[in-house]
């Protein structure tokens, strides 16, 4: 019985491992977003980074579009706006809650949440 269930458990664990496999940039312990991003965000369009940050506040929300959160990078305390699309699942941020965000910079220089992990 146990032996019969083992493969299922193993598959589930693998699946979880795959599902929660950290993307590039989120593998480190800190944020790897370059400082120059603040001066020229468009210059980093297409790049992806991971950021350890806590939720400071929600700046704006639009139904069907998403929201913009203000997060504070854990390493240096810098504040960053983060665009979270409406369809991001299971993301229910709370103020002060720490996350590891996987972000991607779009054409306008916006930091768009692509993945997250609660810390």
């Amino acid at each position: 019985m146990i032996a019969a269930a083992f493969p299922v458990i193993a598959v589930a664990i693998v699946a979880l491992i795959i599902a929660f496999k950290p993307s590039k940039g989120m593998s480190g312990s800190g944020s790897d977003l370059p400082d120059r991003y603040f001066d020229a965000p468009k210059s980093f369009a297409g790049n992806s980074y991971s950021i350890n940050a806590s939720v400071d506040s929600q700046l704006a929300y639009k139904g069907g579009v998403g929201r913009i959160l203000l997060v504070q990078v854990s390493e240096n305390g810098a504040l960053l706006p983060l665009f979270v699309q409406e369809d991001t699942k299971n993301f229910n941020p709370m103020t002060g809650q720490k996350y590891r965000f996987a972000v991607k910079i779009d054409g306008e220089g916006k930091l768009v949440l692509s993945n997250f992990r609660k810390m």
């Binding site: 965000p41 504040l79 306008e108």
Partner: peptide, 14 residues
């Protein structure tokens, strides 16, 4: 560049 502006104001706020 609204996002850039937003970043600037956030930096100012900081």
């Amino acid at each position: 560049d609204k996002w850039e502006a937003l970043l600037g104001f956030i930096r100012a706020k900081q």
